[in-house]
Design a protein around this nucleic acid. Structure first.
Lengths: 222, 222, 222, 222
DNA sequence: TATGAATGAGCTTTCATTCAT
DNA sequence: GATGAATGAAAGCTCATTCAT
């Protein structure tokens, strides 16, 4: 029943769908930009290249986005919001309490959900990863969205399951980081580093869930 | 006794230490370049900026490195080699068999050793991470060094400990990936994302080792 | 009775008043254009800026004026005509003979009349002054209107009063130029350079008339 | 003996002659720029046009002057300083008292001196006149140099000769303005509007001096 | 009639690279 | 070896103008 998350999410997204009209040319520009940004990096991409690939005049890009850096932000912002949307849902914690009796269920749901998201937006996410460290505006966005919204909320989830005795007592930040590393490590390998490899996603997900659950279990080993 | 690794490593490095003479100006150039590359990214950095920060004339950079991209490679290559050096040692597997009876010992040794390395070369590693995806030459280097040398060798280690029944039967690649994710996730958070936070490295290392060992243990949970 | 000039002028203007209908938008465009042209100069003003200030679409400007340079000419031409209108009157010389027995009366009348005009159209006159030297079309207009019509006619007036022994024998062109300099010098200082200063126009006019009359008198000095 | 002014001036200018080294290319750039600025106006002149006329690469302009507007200022500033230099001389007033017993001598000296200057630097002065109203930096320069230094000092000269009873009692500002108008009016007509005409400078100077002296004399007319 | 999206030429400026000194 | 003036290609961006709606 993890898709329930997606349900609550839906209402949130409906707002976003009513965005200002985007012309056909704008869509082409964004598509071209994402492709080339992902391929050569933002700074190494020229606006004339984007215009050419998008099949529009260079001036058209600047009519709509004013600056090149504005185009980058216009691309990244909505994806950044969608990236954290499942965590930003109003009654996040209660939902999870009801939905996911065990930490394992929660982990699996999140894993599946966000991996699907990664598959869908892989190129934009690649651009995000590479440009956030060099772009103060994106950094601020990231700080606000991810740090404030996601890490803090997931932290509380971890504490919650720790209180229930489901997972080990250890700094919640560290636990969050290790789980995130496992998931992000898979996402990066799967969709950015070696997308051409023959992946068995179900098996990998099972393995990761087992790895994290065992890793955080209270049992002594051997 | 993990420092033994460093001993074998020494012989390897001796070759590197006998590099061609580098002038004082070259050192300043490289220092300046690394700093600015790490701060703004390779493409967004101009050679005049590097020259200014290094206190040399712009022509001097090109006298030594011919092109800007050459300078990048001159910076990254030796660090890439040092990064994988501990794995490239000739009799790697035998050494490990003797040195590390348990997978845990091996993991811990590697973790400590490579984290020290990351701390030392954090800026260059940041540049590497960001430029490898966009630079064919660096990509080739990375493929050769990391894929061929490291992953393949560590893979065999994993298989070795699987055969001994120390860790679960699962695709070795996946196990390598999950461990690498855990370590790299820490390194990135520790030295790139939040270096200013108050870190307790020993505790974190213990936690990660426990996380990985439990995660890969044969025991059923609960 | 200098307003008599204005009377003759009236007939001339009646033609101009029957101009083609100008829409409300056109007026706004011209107002905006004059303001910005006067502030930043013609070349440094963009049509989009004019459109924005006028509250119309950029296309509307081009629907009415075809080109930017056309807009400039549409602004300057009628003012240029009005500027020289008092001199262009058909029976100019006779009128003056009757009206103004003394050169001083003529000078004073002209001074007052054209200063009022300058006050009214100061911004457009500023644009004119700045663009005539760089715009062949405006140059031609200026040559025709000012040189042919004004200078030549005023020249004849000067000769007339010289013949009467009211003013010194000297090249009429030089006399015209010195009087024009005195008047234009005041107009420029008064309305362009230091409009915010506290001016006593009547006193200044008296002083200028005295300056010119003494300057051109036959009396020896001292 | 009006050239005495030039003598005192010499010492001042010697400082300026020891300017920083200007390369041959810089001179060509400035020459080309002045010519085209004077012909089409600053805003309507492109840097590529300047580069072409100067026979240098476009980049060379920016290596030396950083921005186009900087080039303008580099051209105008020294001429603005030279323009006011004769007035800025330290013991200006005393010098004049000794040198010029009569206001007429002073006027004639100034007239001849500054007209020679105008002839020499006519193109730059044209650029100055046109760009000062639209360029805040030049405006500030002009205010400081001309208002503070020139007008104020000449004002005092006028007051001095008024006290001696050589010229009429009238607002000194107005007297300064009328004399300046006469001179500038000639300079503009002579060197900018109709340089091709056949001018008799000596005669014009005599006439202007007479015009101003009579214009400011205490005698009643007629 | 009025609009404003679209254009592409041209703008100022930056850049990696060369080379005479 | 080191310099920094010079380069010209290409960058991001602006502009006057057009045209389908």
């Amino acid at each position: 029943m993890p898709d329930q998350v997606e349900q609550w999410l839906a209402e949130l997204l409906r707002l976003n769908d009513e965005e200002e009209k985007v012309t056909e040319k704008q869509i082409k520009i964004v598509q071209a930009a994402v492709e080339i940004f992902a391929e050569k990096g933002y700074s190494a991409t020229s606006t004339s290249e984007i215009a050419q690939k998008a099949g529009v005049a260079e001036g058209t890009i600047f009519r709509h986005y004013k600056t090149k850096q504005n185009l980058l932000i216009a691309i990244v912002t909505p994806i950044m919001e969608k990236l954290v949307a499942p965590f930003v849902i109003r009654n996040f914690q209660e939902v999870l309490n009801v939905q996911y009796e065990h930490f394992e269920d929660f982990m699996r749901a999140m894993l599946i959900n966000r991996l699907a998201f990664t598959r869908k937006y892989a190129p934009v996410l690649k651009v995000m990863i590479h440009e956030i460290p060099f772009n103060p505006d994106l950094q601020a966005q990231f700080m606000e969205h991810v740090s404030t919204n996601v890490v803090e909320r997931v932290r509380r989830i971890v504490v919650h399951f720790q209180a229930q005795g489901q997972i080990i007592e250890a700094p919640a930040d560290s636990i969050v980081r290790m789980c995130a590393s496992t998931i992000v490590g898979y996402a990066v390998t799967r969709y950015l580093l070696a997308p051409e490899r023959d992946w068995n996603d179900d098996e990998e997900i099972d393995l990761m869930v087992r790895f994290m659950m065992h890793g955080l279990s209270l049992n002594p080993v051997r």
